[in-house]
Design a protein around this nucleic acid. Structure first.
Length: 229
DNA sequence: GTCCAGATTA
DNA sequence: TAATCCGGAC
């Protein structure tokens, strides 16, 4: 097959995937407070920090109280480290997160709450790694950036192409595919759809029998060949 | 025991 | 590139 033809096939599959997931999302998408419109950039960034290696449902039960206790960058920057640890303990990673969160808040107070659009400068802010930077671009700057976490990586790898490198952040193919997949007018919805789909259907142990994209999924094809499902 | 909307450090 | 952080849900 020629190079251009392979690209057409890939594009067609991406279109199919986008349409099916948006459809699935309308019926099955999760509702979270931090997905609402009109929150402060502080509230959006805090949600991403709390969501690191922590189930979304766990954060959902915890988030509103945290925002009441620490309503803005200033409150967080001035908070006693010990008090911050006490609040973060129930969701885990509390020693790291308390220190890093405070450093992030101090930096954001210096910047008067303004997040820079320049990517390198954005990532220079403490605790602002690739994922949160993408989330800032997606949610706050309204750019079609992918939320490439372990969940999206798992879905993309199964449906499209396995990763080449162990670390998803430096896998060019996985990254390029992710950008392609969320490059859509409804970039935000596609991202959330993939995360929800990964949490509810395309789990570590996949529920292929209820999956809307299984007919074009590489993993599903292989499962059928090996007669495992 | 595995897994979770990752980032940092060596 | 790999180890480490951490509690909670399953």
């Amino acid at each position: 097959m020629s190079r251009s033809k392979m690209e057409n096939v890939a594009d067609e599959k991406v279109g199919f995937f986008q349409a099916k997931l948006l459809e699935w999302y309308k019926l099955n998408g999760r509702k979270f407070y931090w997905r609402k419109k009109g929150l402060s950039s502080y509230q959006y960034v805090i949600a991403e920090v709390l969501l690191q290696r922590t189930r979304a449902e766990t954060v959902a039960n915890f988030y509103p109280q945290f925002i009441i206790e620490f309503p803005n960058w200033n409150a967080l920057a001035n908070a006693e480290l010990q008090r911050l640890e006490d609040y973060l303990r129930p969701v885990g990673l509390y020693r790291q997160r308390s220190v890093r969160l405070k450093n992030l808040a101090i930096e954001m107070v210096k910047r008067k709450g303004e997040l820079p659009k320049d990517r390198k400068e954005l990532e220079s802010i403490p605790f602002m790694g690739q994922y949160i930077a993408n989330a800032v671009e997606l949610i706050i700057f309204k750019e079609p950036s992918p939320l490439v976490d372990v969940n999206m990586a798992r879905v993309v790898e199964r449906v499209f192409e396995p990763r080449k490198l162990a670390d998803i952040r430096y896998d060019p193919q996985l990254q390029a595919l992710s950008y392609l997949i969320v490059n859509h007018k409804k970039a935000k919805e596609i991202n959330w759809a993939i995360l929800d789909f990964a949490a509810l259907v395309c789990k570590p142990t996949p529920l292929c029998s209820i999956c809307p994209v299984s007919i074009k999924c590489n993993l599903f094809k292989n499962l059928k060949v090996n007669n495992l499902d």
